[in-house]
């Protein structure tokens, strides 16, 4: 993971129009930008994500009207442990952008919900709560979606075992 942090320090993402617009619109919010394989992303603090997303959606020059995906990575043992990843698309401009929020390890990682900005965020956030245990503050219906309601544990976490049966041999 150390090499990954090194790759983030200098990147062509600064030339991305969305990143430049974000830096101009949110001057006191610490925003880091990075890029890999031609895909740019910006890392914003959790408190700012709703305002940032609303800006990206409503700004006339950016118009990121579609939230394609919300997912999360568990990067244990890296600190911060959680990385919530949002994929955005601007349909009129045919441009993609990625937003990330880093959350420290703790008993109850929490991020504000994007449901006030994008309707589709609802089920994506429920899935991340179900499988990773990340809470989304302000979500209208934060319940388990894929596993039974009384399931204990968050299977997609890195320290959660795969489960299943013992077999006599492994691959």
């Amino acid at each position: 993971m150390a090499e990954m942090n090194a790759a983030l320090t200098e990147s062509p993402a600064e030339a991305n129009s969305a990143v430049m617009a974000l830096r101009a619109a949110f001057p006191d919010v610490p925003i880091r930008a990075a890029s890999m394989y031609g895909q740019d992303w910006a890392i914003v603090p959790a408190e700012a994500i709703v305002a940032v997303a609303r800006f990206l959606r409503d700004d006339e020059t950016l118009r990121f009207d579609s939230l394609v995906d919300i997912t999360a990575s568990d990067l244990l043992p890296r600190a911060p442990r959680w990385e919530i990843v949002y994929q955005l698309t601007s349909m009129p401009r045919n441009v993609r952008f990625r937003l990330k929020v880093e959350v420290e390890d703790g008993p109850d990682p929490e991020v504000p919900s994007l449901t006030p900005v994008y309707l589709v965020a609802n089920w994506f956030e429920r899935e991340m709560f179900d499988l990773m245990g990340i809470r989304f503050g302000g979500h209208p219906n934060l319940r388990r979606i894929l596993l039974p309601d009384d399931w204990q544990g968050f299977p997609l976490r890195y320290d959660h075992p795969i489960g299943g049966e013992e077999v006599g041999f492994t691959s």
């Binding site: 795969i162 489960g163 299943g164 049966e165």
Partner: peptide, 12 residues
């Protein structure tokens, strides 16, 4: 027998 999914989610 659970097939290729030997994990928490599939009944084996």
């Amino acid at each position: 027998s659970g097939g290729i999914f030997n994990n928490y989610a599939v009944i084996q």
